[in-house]
Design a protein around this nucleic acid. Structure first.
Lengths: 245, 245
DNA sequence: AATTTAGCGATTGTTCAACAATCCTTCGAT
DNA sequence: ATCGAAGGATTGTTGAACAATCGCTAAATT
């Protein structure tokens, strides 16, 4: 059992104060929608989550975060509500919130969502710009591979799948996909994958992209489906499978 | 433009106090997870939303709801955050939260999500119990039709589609579908449909169910897809189409 | 010695009261 | 009639307070 220690790396955001919001002396020049403090707190936590400053299982203490970020506990609470709705964090009533961690079952669950959303979106075909975005993500991945930039390869891969979902042109699907990708990112920190983990992806992505560009949607969809299945297997391996039930 | 009047029916929950939670004198017999006050507030609002006590576009004033439900403004705020994450309510910064309403574009968007999720789930086939649940929803609809119970027919229809998604056995897909259905329910209040609106559904549902039971997943999926397309068209009609963009 | 019990400290859940910021409206000036 | 300046109302955020609950430690019981 790779159960993460709940006390590991409890939120010590040290001096990471919230970015000032320009003190607003010179009047809001544009109706740019200034994010509320609660949102900025959520953003900050999301960031720390994404870059692995907060590991799965870590406990987030309200008062600590409130102090570190210089906001009220109540505001932190609202931020928690947001993160919880995104499944990035789990609330244990009366015990606190903890950084979420994908269990074996969750991996399969997440891939079930991805299969549904990505395949359906790909079948939509999308606009030429949409297809171009997919192609761009493929190239981004190739460049990252050429530079042997592990992190960039992973990012490019997420861009690729994000671009596929974007083909459907649905706000809701996009936001669902964004959440799923955020969840997976969380998981990847536990599973620091080695170089060739992503290498396979690059070829697959390109092949899918080519089929898409050629308008062979069925073939593209089949390829994507196969890719997702393989990817899930690999993820399950990394995690240490325990009977998906 | 059927723009709903923002002041219409602002939350006057009158005497709808929150249901007491047993005062907890006799110690919690089971670890039944007592929902927090914020959750109960969200539940109450969700209920009023579902039964049309709060119409789309209506404004929800923090202080009013706090008083009516006998809770603090801060707690109402947390409830709002939850509802907003479910898209049942929209936050206009510094202006308040309003009951969400589906615009023309949203209808298409919602159906895009449904096509992705429902078709994919149906293709999974599911367990015998899952299929039985689908069948049960069909029968429920028939009974409701026999009794000419408009409301019950609609409910049965939602059960039917919920059961289809449940075939995939994915927590996440289920919760996504639940949200989508909640959004649609919201919309239906604006579009009080006439009797034969649902009548067509019953035949379709049964046909899909039969294909599913026969193991003809591809055919079932095609039927479902066609159904969703037709349903979207009808919804768009009711709404008063304005060019889906 | 092992197990249960009781008590303690810490943290969450919730309330309350205050104040700044912002928006909408109304009124008044031009 | 148009524009701009108060005014009022509501949201956004804070800080402090207190009850409820949890986990742990130490005492008490068998």
């Amino acid at each position: 059992m790779a159960t993460t220690d709940p006390t590991v790396r409890s939120a010590r955001a040290s001096t990471s104060e919230l970015p000032e919001r320009g003190t607003r002396t010179g009047a809001a020049r544009l109706r740019v929608a200034v994010p509320s403090v609660a949102e900025r707190v959520a953003d900050e936590l999301r960031l720390q989550l994404a870059e692995g400053a907060l590991l799965p299982g870590a406990r987030l203490t309200e008062s600590t975060i409130a102090e570190d970020l210089g906001v009220s506990r109540n505001t932190v609470r609202e931020a928690f509500a947001e993160l919880a709705s995104e499944r990035l964090v789990v609330r244990h009533p009366n015990r606190g919130v903890f950084v979420a961690s994908l269990e074996a079952g969750d991996v399969h669950d997440v891939y079930t969502v991805r299969r549904a959303i990505e395949v359906s979106s790909l079948r939509a075909g999308g606009t030429p710009e949409g297809v171009a975005a997919v192609r761009a993500a493929v190239e981004e991945g190739k460049r990252a591979a050429a530079a042997s930039d592990e992190d960039a390869i992973g990012t490019a891969n997420q861009h690729f799948h994000g671009a596929i979902v974007a083909l459907a042109g649905s706000r809701r699907l996009n936001s669902i996909m964004a959440q799923v990708l955020a969840e997976m990112r969380l998981f990847f920190h536990k599973a620091t994958v080695d170089a060739h983990f992503y290498q396979h992806y690059l070829r697959d992505n390109e092949e899918i992209c080519e089929a898409l560009e050629a308008g062979e949607l069925d073939r593209a969809a089949d390829l994507l489906l196969a890719y997702l299945d393989r990817s899930e297997d690999r993820m399950a391996d990394v995690h240490g499978e325990a009977g998906t039930a």
